[in-house]
Design a protein around this nucleic acid. Sequence first.
DNA 1: CGCGAGATTGATGCCGCTCAACACAAGTGG
DNA 2: CCACTTGTGTTGAGCGGCATCAATCTCGCG
Lengths: 217, 217
Amino acid sequence: MLCAGLDDEFLPALNAISSKVTLEKGENLFIEGDRSTYVYNVIEGFLRLSRLGQDGRRQVLGFLTTGDYLGHTSRSEYTLSAEALSDLKVCRFRREDLQGLLSTYPRFERQFHHMTAGLLDDMLDLVFTIGRKNALERVASFLVYQMDRKSVSDTMPGSIWLPMTRADIADFLGLTLETVSRAFSRMKKNGVISIDHAHTINILDRGRLIDLSEGNG
Amino acid sequence: MLCAGLDDEFLPALNAISSKVTLEKGENLFIEGDRSTYVYNVIEGFLRLSRLGQDGRRQVLGFLTTGDYLGHTSRSEYTLSAEALSDLKVCRFRREDLQGLLSTYPRFERQFHHMTAGLLDDMLDLVFTIGRKNALERVASFLVYQMDRKSVSDTMPGSIWLPMTRADIADFLGLTLETVSRAFSRMKKNGVISIDHAHTINILDRGRLIDLSEGNG
DNA sequence: CGCGAGATTGATGCCGCTCAACACAAGTGG
DNA sequence: CCACTTGTGTTGAGCGGCATCAATCTCGCG
């Protein structure tokens, strides 16, 4: 499917103004400072949104996959970079073209606005997590969030595929990669999860994982 | 003025579907769990957005004042509380009524969407700040942000009026109130700011404050 | 004046960062 | 097939920044 995430009735119109882009793992879709000309929708693959401080500090703002949109901003330049974590297919719209569509299809506009508000809600959750939770709670929260995104965990129930590295997770949660690794180890020891190949996490005790994420450890 | 922050041409239509609400300092406009029926616009005064964890941990998500909107969410219930930091006047719209307006005035819809995207950009900044900056840098970043909102600092140039307590600032930045207080003291000692009455901060060296906020201390 | 909420400052302890060593898997070239 | 490399993950030891606990100070207000 091309350009997922919205009602099918809009897809033909969407496709008319979109072009398909393919990236290899490691390539950037855009970086901080690029003019924010386009909005993108992920067709297939994974990517990471991140921002770099001048001295090299990095904050990861999110991990996206099939159906997710990116590139919304109120500013004329992107304030973050988008890098492919795997081979990646996206479709691309000029923001102006999209604007035209939005005027033509009011219901589409509403859905689009609703998605932006959803991103905002996600960011509020993230702020609470990194602002007020300790390391173990943050990593548990991360797993719970990934668990709830069925597009990620649709292969094996109760197991999560994580395409990103420990360093990526750390920079997402405001931790170091060592601390993330230790949190995983503690959860293994407690029988909450098990890990086969570092990128496949099996949730053994969903209830306890949720408790951990909320500080009822 | 009623319902600020948008082009004047929409104000008559806005006013037709809005009602005015007045709160005293300390009252809640809404709390987490309330049905998200309304969207609000601040006419006058200050308020604080916050979220409470089960065990009492609090995260402040933002401080709003004249012209700011609140109540956008993709969810059917608010995930945060809004409390008046001062006597407060807001105008209130049913989301459904607003929806009708948005369909009628496409340009209004665009502006509204643009504001939501702006909130999102602000939250991304906040995530970077609390995820990757130390205590001094966070407090400096907070001051820089308040400095750049002219609606707050329009009285005296170079001085900022902070209606919130140290605890509010701490819960906004993911710190404790003591750490915030110490950060202010250090900046006083270094001649970057001076403080008269705890809620009025004078910026003595704007350049150095910005440097501090970016980690070039 | 005395009270109470908020702010400042100090002493101590702990969680997560830093530095470092080692483990493990995938890829490369001989 | 093995030796070597490279990227990534795990585990350990020690340290430091911020939290915690606590005392004192300031200011507005009855």
